[in-house]
Computed example of a mutant assay.
Amino acid sequence: MAERRQRARVQGGWAGGAAGKARSAAPKAPAASNLAPADARPAWVRKDQRHTQKHFVFEKPSEVERRVPEAGVIDKPGVYELSKGPTGISRIHLIPGFIDSEQADWMFEQLLQDIPWGQRTHIRQDVSFEEPRLTSWYGELPYTYSRITMQPNPNWHPLLTMLKERIEEFTGYTFNSLLCNLYRNEKDSVDWHSDDEPSLGKNPVIASLSFGATRTFEMRKKPSPEENGDYTYVERLKIPLDHGTLLMMEGATQEDWQHRVPKEYHSRDARINLTFRIIYPEPDGVWK
């Protein structure tokens, strides 16, 4: 019995010694620093962070929708102030029935027959094309527009002289020139433009008298400098010009607005438009 105990102590002591040697031989792991703050520890060791982590989703900011304004319509008699700016007030005066229907009928027929209508040719970027309408010019001075010069024609038709005097009496303005336009059908037109040639002077007054088929006279405001010539969002107007209607354009209208008579898709009879104006000699005496 005593021998068995002795052997057990010897074996146990050998085993314990071997284990001790093994423990002393293993390298010691470095102790974690107690001075490092908890927040400085890597995020992956913080078990509670997995439950509080937020997910951010990028959302593109919504763009402000900019709508193209609907064109306004002017079809009632009256004086309309279109805009007001540094250049002045843009104003039109619409007078339907300035010439009553019965008189307008025979005037239209006489003008259609007696005026020496002609078709001018434009040259743009070395390409020539004919104006989609017929024209005629009356006045002591020539008139140049779109690089076309219409030579002086002092031989006023008596009916045109009578109409000029009637308009002058009604409006208080004096005119010395007249551009006549004949729109033969719905395919004839005039593109966007302003009557702002130097020979017309500053803030010209244009008296436009219509005979024949009703055509829509469209206007659009010139864009601000910030728009870089983009007419997409500018203010627009539509004005139906009936048989015998007088339209006056005054103030800064030619400076701040453009106008046109567009082609139409429905059949239209002939229309005559008389535009009375004041022409001044070119300062340098050269007509361009």
Rank of each mutant, 00 (worst) to 15 (best):
L112F: 14
E3R: 14
A22H: 09
A252V: 04
V205P: 00
T216A: 08
F211I: 08
F129D: 06
V10Y: 04
V286N: 01
A26Q: 13
V45Y: 14
A22R: 11
R277H: 06
E169C: 06
V10I: 10
T174W: 01
G285W: 02
P142H: 00
F211S: 09
G88Y: 02
A29R: 13
L247S: 02
G16N: 14
L94D: 05
W44S: 05
V79S: 11
Q119G: 13
A25F: 10
N34Y: 10
L163D: 06
P225Q: 03
A2V: 02
V127F: 01
R271N: 10
D196V: 00
Y138L: 14
I123W: 00
A25K: 04
I278F: 08
A213P: 09
E65C: 03
K164N: 12
D196G: 03
P37G: 06
E165S: 09
E282P: 03
I148Y: 01
V190F: 13
L111I: 06
V261F: 10
Y138N: 12
G139C: 05
P27W: 05
Q49V: 13
R67C: 08
Q53A: 07
I272D: 15
A43E: 04
S24P: 04
G78K: 01
V57S: 06
M107P: 02
T171N: 04
A71V: 01
G229P: 06
L134R: 13
K187M: 13
A22N: 05
A22I: 10
I239F: 10
G12L: 15
I99P: 12
P27T: 02
R5C: 07
I74L: 15
Y138H: 13
K221Q: 15
P69T: 05
T216K: 04
W117T: 07
R277K: 02
L112H: 15
Q151I: 01
T161S: 12
A40Y: 09
V205F: 11
A207G: 11
K54G: 05
D114E: 15
D114G: 00
K21C: 15
R5I: 12
G251K: 02
S146Q: 12
E109M: 10
N185Y: 02
I278E: 03
Q125V: 01
N228C: 06
T149C: 12
L112M: 15
E102L: 04
T245C: 14
A207M: 12
T52R: 03
S24I: 07
V73I: 07
E63G: 12
A29M: 11
P96M: 07
F129M: 03
G85K: 05
V190H: 07
R260M: 04
G244M: 02
I239C: 07
Y173N: 07
Q113I: 09
E226Q: 13
T87Y: 08
A36C: 07
R23S: 08
A26R: 15
V234G: 01
E140N: 11
R166P: 02
H157A: 14
R260N: 03
T171V: 08
V234S: 14
G13T: 03
G139F: 10
D191M: 08
K21P: 00
